[in-house]
Design a protein around this nucleic acid. Sequence first.
DNA 1: GGTGTTTGTCAGGGCTCTCAACAAATTAGT
DNA 2: ACTAATTTGTTGAGAGCCCTGACAAACACC
Lengths: 416, 416
Amino acid sequence: MTAVGRVESRSAEHGPASQQDMRRQNLAVVLGAVAAQGPLSRADVAGRVGLTRAAVSSLVDELIGRGAVTEAAATARGRVGRPGRALTVCDEGPAGLGLEIGVTHLGACVTDLRGEPRIWRRVERPNAGRPAGRVLAEAAALGAEVEAEAEALGLRVAGRLLAVPGVVPNRPGGLVERAPNLGWSGVRLADHWPDPGTVPEPENEANLGALAEYWNAGRPEETFVHVSAETGIGAALVIDGRLFRGARGFAGELGHLPVRPDGPACACGARGCLEQYAGEAAVLRAAGLPPHCSPAGGPTGTGPGDPVALLAERAAAGHAPTLRALDRAGRALGLALTSAVDLIDPDGLVLGGAYAELADWLLPSVRAELAARVTVRPWAAEALRPSVLGRRGPLLGAALTTVRRIMADPTLLPAG
Amino acid sequence: MTAVGRVESRSAEHGPASQQDMRRQNLAVVLGAVAAQGPLSRADVAGRVGLTRAAVSSLVDELIGRGAVTEAAATARGRVGRPGRALTVCDEGPAGLGLEIGVTHLGACVTDLRGEPRIWRRVERPNAGRPAGRVLAEAAALGAEVEAEAEALGLRVAGRLLAVPGVVPNRPGGLVERAPNLGWSGVRLADHWPDPGTVPEPENEANLGALAEYWNAGRPEETFVHVSAETGIGAALVIDGRLFRGARGFAGELGHLPVRPDGPACACGARGCLEQYAGEAAVLRAAGLPPHCSPAGGPTGTGPGDPVALLAERAAAGHAPTLRALDRAGRALGLALTSAVDLIDPDGLVLGGAYAELADWLLPSVRAELAARVTVRPWAAEALRPSVLGRRGPLLGAALTTVRRIMADPTLLPAG
DNA sequence: GGTGTTTGTCAGGGCTCTCAACAAATTAGT
DNA sequence: ACTAATTTGTTGAGAGCCCTGACAAACACC
């Protein structure tokens, strides 16, 4: 309710409400309270969420039965009266598996219900241009390996997401519409995944990175724009704490915002797009470095240092062309973000992905541009911040998605 | 569910759910079905929404008791079996009052629960620069008059909204933060409204216009950007059928999008803002017409023809400077809307307010610019359309807001 | 006029919450 | 050490709401 719906009311979610829905929601509310406010007794929960102790007791029993909550051994003491039995979110049992296919690596991560990453795996792989089936088979093998490892830790994977640097349409179906940097087009995961029982759900990596940032470091109900530069320049919009994908799933296409209407022609057909100034290729060129990851199909020379690290290194060393290139990119980015701020009025802007590692050199010029151009509303320089997760965001977000789904609907877990 | 939340689940609306919530939602679902699908019997409703006939019977009884629904006299015949008793949304009883304060007029409108405008009143008044108290007193008088008239029609006003051309903060409190074209700043409605029992809730007119457009002509759950040029150039964002106001209520500030980063200086302090190309003053100047509504405090010469009508007249007559000015404005608007499309990925773009009346001459250049620049996603020229309500939108939206609130929560009505 | 079909209502039952009462477990006081 | 006070978790009764199944009412068709 921060931003949406002061004029309109909510409710009327189109379907009729049943008692199961009520139960579902109350289970989620209790679980949410336990997750957010540390160890809590049933009475504590009742007091905070506004249910009676009797109701909370019944709900907690069910949550324990489903393996979402456990009674901690240590009972809180020190206060007068009978001590309550401390409840915590279970760190065994249900878990989320995240997989990631990057241009030069595969990743896998398992988090428990508390959201803690318990397994983290990253292997370098030149995925660009290789057949999708081969890449997916390797990802599946990595996933199976990690799932076995999770089993040994007492974790049972309850959902699987795959972060991909590409376009994933809104409608379900496990389709990756296209992933230019991988050379994929119209890849349906189920067609290539070895084990039909463990096919993950694909999602755009920038979206997952933004969600991870929100879940890890965001304020409740926050509205922010998360910019990352992996597949071109993408922005993910988190509105009132929920990902906004647009009518067709194309929201946040920041890379082709017209920054200078008569600027250089872009591959997209328009002129003066942001990517011409702040895209990886443009920055590398301006900094006097060779382009690195050629588009799909080309040579997949995944050299030792990745270009972002190289840029950061040179910038730190005071290399003038690099500094100029980053300043120019920052100013263009600030111009594009001015449009985003004017339109969306977000609480914050987050520079994620590769930008997070270059934040030291990008932030000043982005901030300057925003300060000069966002004038008709309050705007604080601190609202622009680098991501705390950086390039770890997408993988973490993939694993956490399952966890958050369970938190929002504990009945997804099988009853004990 | 069109756009938001494929990755995240819903539920967990923070508060615990009660049986009253369930009842509330089911009342809304039944009422919504009756409103959307014409006269319906209880059995029809049950079949469509997925409740049992017994439950629907009980819900309908309550809706009748609250005056939201009536049993029509005519029973549907022709089919085999006992004929159902037709239910319709009540066209007497609960009603919504909308008031509007414009720069040169006051407006009032009453709609019944079906959403039909039953009373429509507009009086010319030079409001710019006059003391807020005086203007509000006149608006209150107009409102009282219209309410009495509604009473005579058997309508009872259940809620009051006031459309203002200004900034209304997100948080409740009846505050109009500033309305430059009226010369208002920090006006709290309750301080000036004669009758404390009928103080309306203020809302930005562009937002209300967008909602009216959605409620009248939109597809369900639609996401669109509604552009209007009254207070500067404002865009209202309707996301999944709900108004999005931004973190602080400043979302949709289209007028100061940087269209040409090094363009002419704008009053806001930045350069090359859209208003410098497509704002009323800029267009009038480019068309060789004198500026009309000077800012607050200046002479309030509300001449016979308003400038928009004059522009339309000259354009229709083929006046070359006017046509050039509109083409230039359209291209700048298209450039700004490219950013909006890239970021939001809306289903549609609606030109409302004054733009609707100039659509014939604006649309081609806006469309051309969008076609040339929106290239990385599907984009259909028809997605850009003129508003069907035009300048009637805000007032209608103000009245309909109350109606939609009741539809979303019929328990707002006193029980019979 | 009889039969079949559909409608609206009623009684019984299940689910989920609230309320009130109570036993259990601990601290504070004497 | 013992009692009083306090807080917790559980239990049973009760209310609200929906579902199931049955039934009378009202119509079309033959």
